[in-house]
């Protein structure tokens, strides 16, 4: 969402280099950080700062989560959330790729749409909730509208940058060798734009998950968000936090999944090659 993220290029080689130098240490630090966070969470409700009734300690929340994880209803909700997220992200990516390549390859078209895009892009998807309910009611399409709108721009902007980043020498070479329009797209534009596209997908995936949960929470579409809302209106604080933790875990899984995809699809790219050459 930030300005820096908009122009985020593929993983910088510098970062990869640092990771290479200290294998395992980052993971260890990460685990220690998580443990410290849990300890703090466990301790705070036992002080007078906040009542355990409104912020139950971590142990109680995790126990509730474990209890829930044994029920079919929980996994049904996870399934609904993942399905809405995946479908929304897929639609956004497909649309962003199609439009991004089309608009990005025609400089006039790009300039012509730039101001409109810059106007539409910052509109928070959440502001569209009343519109979504009005048009689609409470069914899946409402959720999709919000998810697609939010994640589309993330991917679209990256695709535009990617398409614009073609090496002029490579382009002239392609022209000199008489590559056709299709071959040019396949061998020049697509490989150039792919790292950008995947960065967009990674950013879009996180935003899509946020909007999926938000839609379920506020519109009442089935899924983890709706379960949070039911738990909230029942005053079941431990369950509210347990479900929030579940959405957090889902977020981590989504990010890890997209990163794995990125590494796989970009095996040939210098940023990933550098990382893999340990």
């Amino acid at each position: 969402m930030s300005a820096a993220a908009d122009t985020a290029a593929p993983p910088a080689p510098a970062a990869a280099g640092r990771r290479r130098a200290l294998p395992g240490r980052d993971a260890l630090l990460g685990a220690a950080g998580a443990a410290a966070f849990l300890l703090l969470w466990e301790a705070v409700p036992r002080t007078t700062a906040v009542s355990a009734e409104f912020l139950p300690p971590a142990s109680r929340v995790l126990a509730t989560l474990a209890e829930r994880a044994a029920t079919a209803a929980f996994w049904g909700a996870v399934g609904d959330t993942v399905a809405a997220w995946a479908l929304g992200l897929a639609i956004a990516c497909a649309a962003a790729v199609a439009l991004g390549f089309a608009v990005g390859s025609v400089p006039v078209l790009r300039a012509y749409t730039a101001s409109t895009v810059e106007f539409l892009r910052p509109i928070p998807s959440v502001a569209l909730i009343p519109l979504a309910i009005l048009v689609y009611g409470t069914d899946l399409r409402s959720t999709l509208l919000l998810v697609v709108y939010a994640s589309f721009w993330q991917v679209y902007i990256q695709v535009l940058y990617g398409v614009a980043d073609i090496d002029p020498v490579a382009e002239q070479t392609a022209r000199a060798y008489g590559l056709g329009r299709w071959a040019c797209l396949r061998h020049l534009v697509w490989p150039t734009a792919l790292p950008y596209l995947l960065t967009g997908v990674r950013l879009g995936a996180a935003v899509a998950l946020i909007l999926t949960i938000t839609a379920q929470l506020t519109i009442g579409a089935p899924g983890l968000g709706q379960q949070i809302s039911v738990a909230q209106s029942s005053g079941a604080a431990p369950l509210v936090y347990a479900l929030i933790v579940a959405t957090g875990i889902l977020g981590v899984a989504v990010n890890a999944g997209v990163r794995a995809l990125e590494r796989r699809l970009l095996r040939w790219h210098s940023s990933v090659r550098g990382e893999a050459a340990v």
Binding site: T138, G220, S229
Partner: peptide, 11 residues
């Protein structure tokens, strides 16, 4: 389950 009374009438 609606997550608030606000959706009832539009729904």
């Amino acid at each position: 389950n609606t997550s608030g009374g606000a959706q009832a009438v539009p729904g």
